[in-house]
Write a protein that binds this DNA or RNA. Structure first.
Lengths: 121, 121
DNA sequence: CTCAGTCATTGACCTGTGTCAATATCGATG
DNA sequence: CATCGATATTGACACAGGTCAATGACTGAG
């Protein structure tokens, strides 16, 4: 059974509720890995807080002291992880944050109340 | 001014509220990087849901098909990031999840309502 | 003191990844 | 069609990071 990146995170017990299976951990880690870079954190943040909730690449390259291909690469990583949506309009490509993915991730790492399980692994 | 890992995350606007500064992004990224590994995700999850909210290394090594030094290495990464507390009692070392750090991280990535800022970067 | 058990550190290897220069693609415009 | 501007792709390079075997440090038991 195949899960899209955000399906891998949604509708599951938080980290602290019960031990994560190896397969679920391997689905979730790439999402966090996509987030775990200063440039990509800022990209996500800039897109999210940009007017209209979207930004095109030319808006973003100006914010960094990095080459355009490098920015494009980071955007691809975020897009492939399911954290950014892409839409091409005329010459420009607009990116938009997939809020659901962030919400699910946040729910996953939020500490739960009392653990339900007494299993060890 | 120096901030401990979780201080770098706490008491700040969420990602989507306003553009993250470079320096804050560089403080937060290492925390996410520490989380962004399947083994470390499982370690954190196992410790959190273990009885008493804590586990010693010998409990953890049994859950993985990895060498003891490798587990120890991953625990160090989580500890250095401020995600796990360490306590040595007699021969054993017990690890415990720092819930505050997880809570702060979750708050950071949770999408906000409307952006407050109209700045671009 | 010696030994055994628990955990951490070191050094080495290999893979993964962030970056750039160069180039390709694609759409708009004249 | 020819050109230009916006974005993506490729290839190369250096560095970071996950893993293990070997070893070290510390503690309790005998």
């Amino acid at each position: 059974m195949l899960l899209s990146p955000d399906e891998a995170v949604a509708c599951c017990a938080p980290l602290s509720r019960e031990p994560l299976s190896q397969s679920r951990a391997e689905q979730i880690a790439p999402l966090l890995k996509a987030l775990a870079d200063p440039v990509r954190l800022r990209l996500l943040s800039i897109v999210a807080s940009h007017e209209g909730g979207e930004a095109c690449v030319c808006d973003l390259t100006d914010c960094f002291d990095l080459s355009q291909p490098t920015i494009s690469h980071h955007l691809k990583v975020l897009h492939d992880a399911g954290l950014l949506d892409r839409e091409k309009r005329a010459t420009w490509v607009y990116y938009r944050v997939r809020s659901a993915a962030l919400t699910d991730l946040a729910a996953l790492i939020t500490p739960a109340g009392e653990p339900t399980s007494s299993r060890n692994c």
